[in-house]
Write a protein that binds this DNA or RNA. Structure first.
Length: 280
DNA sequence: GAACAGGCAACTC
DNA sequence: GAGTTGCCTGTT
């Protein structure tokens, strides 16, 4: 037990899963989420208005959170999905075996649909530090307070809250041309014009089509929202990193649908590796 | 200062 | 329909 765990009031530090099942560093750093930050070897984050700290000790992943939230977190970390089987299903070639080895322990988080949609609207033409900065400012200005460990963290603001704002209210975010996209997406969600819960039940193709109607949401953002926010694991977002990886390692006529129902996990394995190589 | 970035929409041909 | 360009802002 090398890591001293500080007990945080009103929360318990409990075993979440084996560290073979979940690698927090890879999972939080692979580009799917923007609200987990490393402090002293552990990650603290907020999701759906709940705060937690995740750490690895010995062979286990531990989570420090209110006891009442533990079911939520088990769901959030997708612990009911068999990732060993999912991983095997996308190891379709030697390159994929290497990517899966490199990205082993990545899990696709079951994030809130609105948060994912909004975050990936912000992501366009931005790098991760800037995306995180804009998202933090959005939460700091408009998110509800979440008391945790003697500090006040902030929830991601609801679509209703953002829908009530005007683009100029978002000026402090420095989100640029994305600000009106954020507002109009919030209004679509808040008004029920876009029902994310119903959309999540549709086949990935149709879910994507619903999101594509939003101004400022194209193919890439829609696919990210479907994969990370609606947890449709067969969605396969393609950005510039993925384009390059597909070009270099797959035949020109390759169809990512060949990866099957866990294509989105395949995407994360490929993406995580491509980005690690590209930015090192 | 110019070019560019994990993308999109509007416009061109 | 395939290709080009401007867009906010921040970084190089």
């Amino acid at each position: 037990m090398g890591l001293k765990m500080q007990k945080i009031a009103d929360s318990v530090n409990i075993w979440l899963c084996s560290s073979d099942e979940l690698d927090p560093v890879k999972t939080f750093e692979c580009g799917q989420c923007f609200r987990w930050n490393a402090f002293g070897g552990a990650y603290t984050g907020v999701a759906s208005g709940r705060a937690a700290t995740v750490s690895v000790s010995g062979g286990g992943v531990y989570i420090d959170a209110p006891e009442a939230d533990m079911e939520f977190w088990r769901d959030y970390f997708d612990l009911r999905t068999d990732y060993a089987a999912a991983r095997r299903s996308v190891e379709t070639c030697e390159y994929m075996r290497e990517c899966a080895e490199f990205g082993g322990g990545i899990r696709i988080l079951r994030q809130d649909g609105w948060e994912a949609l909004c975050s990936f609207i912000i992501s366009q033409c931005n790098n991760i530090p800037r995306i995180k900065g804009i998202v933090e400012k959005l939460c700091g200005l408009f998110g509800d307070p979440v008391p945790y460990g003697g500090q006040i963290l902030r929830a991601f603001p609801s679509a209703e809250r953002v829908a009530a704002l005007e683009a100029e209210d978002l000026a402090p975010l420095r989100a640029g041309y994305r600000a009106p996209y954020i507002i109009s997406a919030a209004r679509a969600v808040a008004s029920g014009e876009l029902d994310l819960e119903k959309t999540a039940l549709l086949p990935a193709r149709e879910a994507r089509a619903c999101l594509l109607k939003l101004n400022g949401v194209g193919d890439k953002v829609a696919n990210c929202a479907v994969l990370f926010g609606l947890h449709r694991m067969d969605a396969f977002p393609i950005d510039v990193w993925m384009k390059r990886a597909l070009r270099e390692h797959f035949p020109p006529d390759f169809d990512p649908a060949q990866f099957g129902e866990y294509a989105g996990l395949a995407q994360q394995y490929i993406f995580y590796r491509a980005r690690s190589e590209g930015t090192s």
